[in-house]
Simulated scan of single mutants.
Amino acid sequence: MEELDPLDGEPVSKTKRKQAMQDKQDLGRALVELPPDRLKRLLGKVELSETLSGALLEYQRLPKREAQRRQLQYIGKLMRDVDPEPIQAALDVVNGASAAENAKLHRRERLRTLLLENEAVALADIAAHWPQADLTHLRQLRRSALKEQEQNKPPKSYRAIFQVLKELEEGGAAAATGDDAGEEA
């Protein structure tokens, strides 16, 4: 039975099928070129078969180029049966290419800058969005970050502020998701 194009109901041409397979193999190549820690993080976010996950991890352990080439062909074969969209979305997030991730990053950076410039306004904004936030800890980090800037020291506290904001944002998203699930039940 011939495969039909979902848009127009016509049979899919051989060229389109080959292009789709090549695109999936290229996606597999992008996955194996990730550093091992990023690949493992991505595999935790996307549901893939154990065979495909194992093949991706095995590729990174192979020492020879010819063995890697054969493994990549095998990964391409396994990718034929997989929906590439969730994988591509997760890959974009891991690589930071997602517009949503970029927006979150910029929002955190603006909030951190506001915290350093105007503590009262920033803390009020943080308290409004995340009532569970430890404002005392943020004040301490702010003072330390300003002191580090004055003394030309490495920006340890400056980075810590960003991490705290990231944790608040991710924790708030998880809490909101949990609340929504509770309301539907």
Rank of each mutant, 00 (worst) to 15 (best):
A185F: 10
S157V: 02
R143N: 11
P155Q: 04
L168V: 11
E117S: 13
Q163H: 09
W130P: 11
K24H: 02
L4N: 08
A181V: 12
L42D: 00
A89S: 12
A120G: 10
K45E: 15
A173T: 13
L146S: 03
T15H: 08
P131G: 09
E119M: 04
G54R: 08
L4E: 08
D92H: 14
S13K: 06
M79Q: 07
T177S: 08
D92G: 15
G9R: 08
N95V: 03
G172C: 05
R41N: 12
L7Y: 09
A120L: 06
Q68H: 02
I126K: 06
V12Y: 01
D125Y: 03
L165Q: 05
T177F: 04
G54P: 06
L56R: 03
E169Y: 11
V93D: 14
E33T: 11
L165S: 06
D125N: 09
Y158G: 03
G182E: 11
K64P: 02
S98A: 15
L105K: 07
L115I: 09
T113H: 07
L39T: 02
A124P: 06
E148H: 00
I75R: 03
R107A: 15
P63V: 03
V93Q: 10
P63F: 01
T136S: 10
P154N: 07
L34Y: 00
T136V: 12
K40D: 14
Q140M: 05
S157I: 01
R108W: 01
Q22P: 01
Q163F: 05
V93W: 01
A100T: 12
M21T: 08
T15E: 13
E184K: 09
R17G: 00
Q71P: 03
V12G: 08
A89Y: 00
K147W: 05
A124W: 04
E167K: 13
Y158V: 02
E50G: 15
E101Y: 14
K104Y: 03
K24P: 00
H129K: 10
A133K: 02
R41G: 11
Y158I: 00
V32S: 04
L138V: 07
T136C: 02
V94S: 05
L111S: 05
L48D: 08
A127D: 11
P36C: 04
D179E: 13
A55K: 10
A128L: 11
K153Q: 14
A89R: 14
A181G: 13
E167D: 15
A181N: 14
K16V: 15
S157Y: 05
E58K: 14
A99R: 12
R38Y: 04
L27I: 12
A67I: 04
L52P: 04
I87H: 05
T177E: 15
F162E: 06
L105T: 08
Y59F: 15
P86L: 05
A99D: 15
M21K: 09
R61L: 12
D92E: 15
R112V: 01
E10K: 13
Y74Q: 12
L78T: 10
E117T: 12
E10D: 06
E150P: 02
Q73K: 11
E117G: 09
L7F: 13
A185C: 05
P63W: 01
L57Q: 14
G96N: 06
A160Y: 04
E3K: 12
P6H: 06
V164A: 07
K166H: 10
Q140E: 12
D92N: 14
L135H: 04
Q73R: 08
L138K: 03
